[in-house]
């Protein structure tokens, strides 16, 4: 089972990213669950989304053993990392998370800046992060995640989102 947690600030689009990842897994015939937790703020407060992917029905729907932990803000890094293990892979936006911790496997990528630099706005950071997550986890194929993103986003934004996926996917070796 793949256990993935995406965290950041409300408005960064991480819940959407989690939903797209789960939809991609279903496209590949797998089981997937997605859940989220958030405070009263729609924007600005910390939020997390969790995605579990398996070949069998998933009973307990929450992450127990976080294999992959994405943090897009320092606050989320601190708030949602309590159960990381030495094996957890921590992926952070290196400009927004100054102090990643919880594991020695840390992947630092300037996710938001890549979005601004290549696509003109920070809006695509979540999709860049999604491309990056797919590269790190191998949870679904790159082709499937492209299909899943294309299905979710407004048609006019598909080319930019495809570009964002590719940037994320190629941001690490």
């Amino acid at each position: 089972m793949k256990e993935i947690r995406l965290s950041g600030s409300g408005g960064q689009g991480l819940i959407t990213a989690g939903i797209i990842l789960a939809e991609a897994a279903i496209m590949e015939g797998k089981q997937a669950v997605q859940s989220q937790s958030y405070g009263p703020e729609a924007r600005g407060g910390s939020s997390k989304a969790e995605v579990l992917i398996d070949d069998h029905f998933i009973y307990h729907p929450k992450v127990v053993n976080p294999q992959i932990f994405l943090a897009m803000t320092q606050q989320a890094m601190d708030k949602y990392s309590h159960d990381l293990t030495p094996d957890s892979i921590v992926i952070v936006d290196e400009d927004l998370v100054q102090n990643p911790h919880g594991s020695e496997h840390i992947v630092k990528v300037p996710i938001t800046n890549l979005s601004v630099e290549h696509l003109g706005r920070d809006l695509f950071a979540n999709i860049i992060a999604l491309g990056l997550l797919v590269k790190v986890t191998g949870a679904v194929s790159f082709e499937t995640i492209q299909k899943a993103v294309a299905k979710r986003v407004p048609p006019a934004t598909v080319p930019k989102n495809m570009e964002a996926l590719r940037i994320g996917y190629e941001s690490i070796q």
Partner: peptide, 9 residues
């Protein structure tokens, strides 16, 4: 809330 907000296949 667990089942109401859960997304699954």
């Amino acid at each position: 809330e667990v089942v109401g907000h859960l997304r699954e296949r």
